[in-house]
C-alpha cells in the first residue's frame, strides 16, 4: 500500500539515535517492500548515508559501542591475562574442572550473562545501591563476564604451550612459577592479541547482555547492536542492515589493523 511521509516525520530515526535527523533520511522511505523483497541497494544506501551523513546521534551510538566493548576487553585483559597465565602454570586439585568450566563458559549465552548482571545490579539486588543498572558501566560489566572466559581460556592455552617450550631455560635462569608469567605473557603477545580480538568480536557482536542491563535507552545506552534490534522490530530492515554493515566494517577495520600489527611483530619475533 502506498503511503506518504512528511519530511520531518521520522520517528524511527529520531528515536533510535536520540537526535532528530535533519536530512530526509534515505532509509525510511525505501522500505515499502515486504520482507522478502528488501533490495540491497537500499541497504547499502542506508549504510552509506549513515557514514557520510555523520549524524551526531549515529556517531554517539558508534562511540558508545566502541567504548563499552573496548573497555570490556581492556578490563577482561587486565584480569584474564595474568589469571590465564597463572592457571597455565599452577597445579592444584580441581584444575581440570576449572579448565573445563572455563571452556564451557566461552559459550555462555550473552542473555544469561546479562541476566546475571541485571539481577546483581537491580535496585532490589545485592549491588542495587550503586544505581548502576541501565548505565554504560553495567553494559561493560556484563561484557566483561562474556569476554573473560575467552581471554582466560585462550591465555591458558597459549601460555601453557609456551611454557612447555621455555620451561627448561626459564627455570635455569631462576624464573620459576609466577615469576615466569611476565616473560610468557610478553613472548606470547601475538597469540594473546588474537585472544583479545576474539573477545572483542564476541563483545561487539552480542546484543542480549547489553539490551538487558543497558535498557537500550536512546542517547545513553543504545549501542549499534541494540539499535539493530530496535530497527528490526520496527520493520526498518534496510536501516537495520545498514547499521549491520557499519558494524561489520568497524570490526573488519579493527581486525585488519590488529592482524597487520601482529604479522609485522610476529615476523620480527620469529
Amino acid at each position: 500500500m502506498p503511503r506518504q511521509r512528511r519530511p520531518l516525520d521520522h520517528p524511527s530515526r529520531r528515536d533510535s539515535f536520540g537526535s532528530a535527523p535533519e536530512d530526509e533520511g534515505c532509509a525510511s522511505k525505501l522500505t515499502q517492500s515486504g520482507v522478502g523483497q528488501v533490495d540491497f541497494a537500499a541497504i547499502f544506501k542506508a549504510a552509506f548515508a549513515l557514514v557520510v551523513g555523520l549524524d551526531p546521534g549515529f556517531l554517539a551510538i558508534v562511540g558508545l559501542s566502541l567504548r563499552v566493548t573496548l573497555s570490556a576487553v581492556l578490563i577482561a585483559g587486565l584480569i584474564g591475562l595474568p589469571l590465564g597465565a597463572a592457571l597455565a602454570l599452577a597445579r592444584f586439585p580441581g584444575r581440570s574442572v576449572v579448565i573445563v568450566c572455563l571452556n564451557a563458559l566461552m559459550g555462555l549465552p550473552p542473555v544469561v550473562a546479562g541476566l546475571f548482571v541485571f539481577l546483581l545490579l537491580s535496585r532490589s539486588g545485592p549491588l542495587g545501591p550503586l544505581g548502576l543498572l541501565f548505565t554504560p558501566t553495567a553494559m561493560i560489566a556484563a561484557q566483561v563476564i562474556l569476554v573473560l572466559p575467552i581471554v582466560i581460556a585462550l591465555t591458558r592455552q597459549t601460555v601453557e604451550d609456551l611454557w612447555s617450550e621455555y620451561r627448561d631455560h626459564l627455570r635455569s635462569v631462576g624464573l620459576e612459577g609466577m615469576r615466569a608469567i611476565p616473560t610468557l605473557l610478553f613472548d606470547g603477545r601475538f597469540a594473546l592479541a588474537t585472544a583479545l580480538l576474539a573477545g572483542f568480536g564476541r563483545a561487539s557482536a552480542e546484543v542480549g547482555a547489553v539490551l538487558i542491563v543497558g535498557g537500550n535507552i536512546a542517547g545513553y545506552t543504545r549501542t549499534m547492536t541494540t539499535t539493530i534490534t530496535l530497527e528490526t522490530s520496527k520493520g526498518d530492515l534496510p536501516l537495520a542492515l545498514g547499521l549491520g554493515l557499519v558494524l561489520i566494517a568497524l570490526t573488519l577495520a579493527i581486525n585488519a589493523v590488529a592482524f597487520g600489527a601482529s604479522r609485522i611483530g610476529a615476523r620480527y619475533a620469529g
Binding site: 617450550e165 621455555y166 631455560h169 626459564l170 635462569v173 613472548d187 619475533a269
Partner: peptide, 19 residues
Amino acid sequence: PIMLRRSVEANIDHALAAA
C-alpha cells in the same frame, strides 16, 4: 637452543634481568 621471541640482545638481557 631455547630462544625467546625477542631480539638476540634481548635474549641475553632477559637472562641477566632474571639474575
